[in-house]
């Protein structure tokens, strides 16, 4: 609960300059060194700007290789930022030293995609959940109490703490990962495809949990996913990424039902609807759009048709 104390009751910005959203990324460029001598580095993000307000969910959609996961990792300080800035609560957090970065851990947290590898298999759930608290200097007894509360919040039984991650199903493990992210009352959680590995019915329940937690705690989500229907369900606003750039942003209803950019339209029409008649209509619509694109200037080269090793 840091930072909320200094007088935002009436919404007055705490500093003189105009306040900005909780988390802002500006012209973010991320580059990974290429293999091979003197090759130019591989640019994954090409000047991306996003912002997330407190208590808001920004859905980040894109296909594989679009850079959506990298953007999340850059916010977490896990990806090498070549230029541009990330600001949290008005302070620049890109390029911080290890110590300052650690201080941010109470404010910015993460839930990863794969619930099978994001929990240390050798540690009990209690140890996993209390670790971030103990790092922050919480006394043992208090940490134990907090862990019980957290398990309750994510609707896991109280005795779950004594067990190892492998004794839980995928959905339950993801709940543990969510509890870990919540343990120190963060203000932003980066969610990297947190429901992609889950079954359909489990997925819906975990998403409901995300929404419920947000409504209760006011945490903001940067929600990375490839699934437009997931994004529609959870996001207030949506940003669509392609090839390391954001090509469209807007509120969730607009982007996921009436997108402007041809690529987003293509993305939307490509996702099959679970209704045979409507899917037939959507299929016809998709073919019509494809025909229009093909007949047009045809600058739109479908990425999958290019023969290259860029999917390595």
């Amino acid at each position: 609960m840091t930072g909320t104390s200094n007088g935002t009751m009436n919404g007055t910005p705490r500093k003189e300059r105009p306040a900005e959203p909780l988390l802002v990324a500006e012209d973010l460029v991320v580059e990974y060194p290429s293999k091979g001598w003197r090759k130019p580095p591989f640019r994954v993000l090409k000047g991306v700007s996003i912002s997330i307000g407190a208590g808001e969910t920004l859905g980040l959609v894109g296909e594989s290789g679009s850079g959506k996961t990298t953007l999340g990792r850059a916010v977490l300080g896990l990806a090498p930022i070549a230029s541009g800035t990330v600001r949290f609560d008005g302070k620049v957090i890109s390029g911080l030293g290890a110590k300052e970065r650690r201080a941010l851990s109470s404010d910015i947290q993460v839930v990863f995609q794969d619930p099978y590898t994001s929990l240390n298999p050798a540690m009990t759930v209690n140890d996993i959940l209390s670790e971030p608290l103990r790092v922050a200097g919480t006394p043992r007894a208090e940490a134990e109490k907090r862990v019980r509360d957290l398990l309750d919040h994510v609707r896991l039984p109280a005795d779950a703490g004594e067990r190892l991650p492998r004794e839980f199903s995928g959905g339950q493990r993801q709940r543990i990962a969510i509890a870990r992210a919540l343990s120190r009352d963060p203000r932003v959680i980066v969610c990297d495809e947190p429901v992609s590995a889950l079954d359909l019915s489990t997925q819906a329940r975990v998403l409901d949990l995300f929404v419920e937690i947000q409504e209760r705690t006011g945490v903001a989500y940067l929600f990375v996913t490839h699934d437009l229907s997931v994004v529609r369900h959870i996001s207030h606003r949506v940003a669509v990424m392609r090839g390391g750039e954001i090509i469209e942003t807007g509120d969730a209803a607009t982007v996921t039902t009436a997108p402007q950019h041809p690529y987003t339209q293509r993305l939307l029409l490509a996702a099959p609807v679970p209704d045979p008649q409507r899917q037939a209509e959507r299929r016809a619509e998709r073919r019509r759009l494809a025909a229009v694109l093909a007949a047009g200037t045809s600058t739109e080269v479908p990425t999958n048709a290019s023969m290259s090793g860029d999917r390595a």
């Binding site: 609960m1 909320t4 935002t8 009751m9 009436n10 919404g11 910005p13 306040a19 959203p21 909780l22 307000g53 407190a54 208590g55 808001e56 509360d149 919040h153 009352d185 409504e215 209760r216 705690t217 006011g218």
Partner: peptide, 13 residues
């Protein structure tokens, strides 16, 4: 949006 933050977080656990 800042005002919302505040109300939201006061209800926190």
């Amino acid at each position: 949006s800042a005002g919302i933050t505040n109300t939201g977080r006061q209800e926190g656990p």
